[in-house]
Simulated scan of single mutants.
Amino acid sequence: MKYSACFDIGGTYIKFGVISSSGGIFTTGKVATPKENAAIQIPEIIAHQVALMSQKYEIQNIGISACGLIDHERGEVLFSANIKDYSGLQLARIVKEKTNLHVSVENDVRCACLGEVWLGAAQGKQDVVLLTLGTGIGGAVVINGRLMRGAGYLAGELGHMSIVHDGESCPCGFKGCLERYASTGALVRHYTRISGNDSANGNDSANGKEIMDLVKKQDPHARAAYDNFLDYLSTGLVNITHLYNPEVIIIGGGITAQGKSLLEDIQEKYQHKVMDVYKVSTEITLARLRNHAALYGAYTVVNQVEEMVR
């Protein structure tokens, strides 16, 4: 059986696992992402874990899902705002030198999307969009079974779709981006503004889960913030639908732990806004693979499963 060592490099943790050609996942774990000297330490961490994996499994290659803007062809981190000393790292080349194995690197949200296409919520689908809701919004687009990367490997930054003219300033340098209104971070900010309170429970700073708990209790401030969030998110989903006409738009991120109730609320807003002709062809659903999605996607990239599922 073919085994790959797969890694998901995030701003807080580096997750890893051994994945088989049948989709089995073994020896999963995580280590803290280095706060300093990331360009040196991250390749060393990967090489060390691969050496440990190789004691039990015949590792044939290495798939890496990485936060930031990634040049997949060169295996290079073009830019990362979340990890110090990480931008410009020729990750694939260095890891290959340390392990003598073929290495592929791709953006984490794109990997998560490919994972959902292979084994998750979009299995068997050819036209798929993934939105991940967190502090910001990540995006990935699959058209005709192929991941859309773009001329500069920058395609799919759907969180920076402008939806409010001259709106809130975004860390990207522009104003009115979708992620300033429809991310979990936006939900928290709006709740804080209208409640005049930076705490949802009287002790800690507000977070998405606490606000959703208050929504269920019909707290007026939480309800207003949530309705605002749904309005903007559904507008973004409609724009994506009209632009790409995907078979499915998958929504991921921690807030999706709310499950069916969240999905129904999103769908209700969406159905009132989208053009009728699109309602039959595009489905809105929640991600299924959660923490393992990007690892599975890293496997598809290094083994070219994205070609096999077409």
Rank of each mutant, 00 (worst) to 15 (best):
S54P: 01
D8F: 02
R74P: 01
N207I: 04
M53T: 02
G196Q: 12
S195N: 11
G63S: 05
E306P: 00
H190S: 09
G145C: 10
Q267D: 09
A257D: 12
V31L: 04
V215M: 05
G138T: 08
C177M: 10
V238A: 05
W118P: 04
G115T: 13
I25P: 02
K56Q: 14
A5V: 12
I25A: 10
A293C: 01
E306L: 05
K216T: 13
N203T: 14
I143M: 14
A182Q: 12
V105P: 01
P171R: 01
V95P: 01
C170I: 06
V103P: 04
L230G: 02
I255R: 08
N82C: 05
L114K: 09
Y299S: 15
C67Y: 07
G11Q: 10
K217L: 15
P171C: 11
K216A: 15
L147Q: 03
M212P: 00
E247C: 09
Y226G: 04
V109K: 03
T256N: 14
A224L: 06
V274D: 06
G236I: 13
E283D: 13
V105M: 10
K84N: 13
M1S: 12
I14W: 04
T282L: 06
A155S: 08
A5E: 15
S87C: 09
K96I: 00
I240K: 05
L114H: 05
L295S: 11
L233V: 05
E106N: 12
G29A: 06
L187N: 11
K96F: 04
V248N: 07
K279D: 06
T27Q: 14
I14E: 03
I46L: 11
K96S: 03
G11S: 10
Q55A: 06
G120Q: 07
D127K: 15
Y299G: 10
M53Y: 08
S65W: 02
D108R: 10
L233W: 09
S20V: 01
V109I: 11
V109H: 04
P34G: 00
V248T: 12
Q90R: 12
T285H: 10
L295V: 09
V215L: 04
I137A: 06
A5M: 07
S80T: 08
I9V: 09
V105R: 08
A224F: 02
T12R: 04
I59S: 00
T135F: 05
T184Q: 03
A5D: 10
E264H: 06
E157H: 07
A293I: 01
A140D: 09
D85Y: 00
R93C: 02
L158R: 07
T300H: 09
L154Q: 08
D204C: 02
I240F: 10
K273S: 07
K269A: 11
M148G: 00
A298W: 09
N239Q: 13
F7H: 07
N228R: 07
T99A: 03
A39N: 10
I42L: 03
R223Q: 15
D219K: 00
T241L: 07
D127R: 15
A92N: 13
S20W: 01
E157C: 03
I143P: 00
K216I: 15
A47Y: 12
Q41Y: 04
R193M: 15
A112P: 01
A206I: 03
